[in-house]
């Protein structure tokens, strides 16, 4: 049987393993649900301070709570996109299980896809919770096509996953101190417009700093998703962020896979696969 046919079985193996590990820490699961509810409630009260005061030129921010919740839900996803693989590799290295996984006849792309699969499922659940709690408890309204929003979400996540693969390559060679995680983690929250419109960066910090937001895939992803969910735009109106994301993907996907392959080869040459 070829690798492609076996891919679902292998993804399922990782998901089943991670699910079992996850349920072995039940308390953590309930505490996370409570913390999401606490964040949504806090944002609801903060949004009340701004009620009726938002600048009409920022059309996506007329309901700040809706913008924040979309931003947080999506940011959660994006963070998983670029941190999940590096984290799984690092965790497997620390546990000492990476060698035994790499001893099985699976190829690198399978390891990449499979080891992040559970993280994405888990994040889907918790990201959905932000939107769900906003809707059920605080009456937040979402418009537009959810399907199109999901397409945007997946596309942006895949682009960020490419950065995640670069991050994992870094973890494979340098073991610690991943610069992608640091820059993209802090950078996305600050420059991608999760908590405030990116136009404000231009206005207050000048065009040089303001333009940083343009080189972050998360900015375009978030812009597209908010255009769809909050402004109710259709496909024709979101082509610009869509094309930008596709360009990111065309460059980053082959490059990141090539770098990861090189990193694994280097670790095998140095015999440092299980070192961390």
């Amino acid at each position: 049987m070829n690798s492609l046919k076996l891919l679902p079985r292998r993804i399922f193996a990782f998901v089943a393993r991670d699910f079992r590990l996850f349920v072995s820490y039940r308390m953590q699961f309930f505490l996370r649900i409570i913390s999401v509810l606490a964040v949504v409630t806090t944002l609801f009260f903060i949004s009340k301070i701004f009620a009726g005061f938002t600048d009409p030129q920022y059309s996506q921010w007329r309901d700040p709570l809706a913008s924040w919740l979309t931003g947080l839900a999506v940011l959660n996803y994006f963070m998983t996109g670029f941190s999940s693989l590096a984290n799984s590799i690092r965790q497997e290295q620390m546990q000492g299980t990476l060698e035994s996984v790499l001893l099985t006849p699976i190829n690198l792309p399978t390891v990449i896809v499979s080891s992040s699969a559970w993280d994405f499922l888990e994040t889907t659940f918790f990201s959905f919770l932000y939107l769900f709690f906003g809707r059920v408890f605080f009456g937040v309204q979402y418009r537009g096509s959810f399907f199109l929003a999901v397409v945007f979400l997946l596309l942006t996540t895949v682009v960020l996953a490419c950065l995640g693969i670069l991050s994992a390559s870094f973890a494979m060679v340098f073991k610690r101190g991943d610069p992608f995680g640091i820059f993209l983690g802090a950078g996305s929250a600050l420059f991608s417009g999760v908590f405030f419109p990116t136009q404000l960066l231009h206005e207050y910090a000048g065009p040089k700093l303001g333009n940083i937001s343009l080189i972050l895939p998360a900015t375009h992803g978030l812009q597209g998703i908010r255009q769809i969910l909050i402004e109710g735009h259709g496909l024709a109106q979101v082509t610009q962020p869509l094309i930008t994301l596709l360009c990111f993907l065309a460059v980053l996907l082959p490059f990141s896979l090539w770098v990861f392959g090189r990193a694994v080869k280097r670790a095998k040459r140095e015999g440092s696969l299980i070192q961390y």
Binding site: L6, R9, R10, A16, R17, S24, Q95, T97, T104, P105
Partner: peptide, 18 residues
Amino acid sequence: YWRLTSEQNLMFFARLHG
């Protein structure tokens, strides 16, 4: 994987073997 049973551990690796 220390928090999985021996059966679950083997099941995981068996699936990776296809």
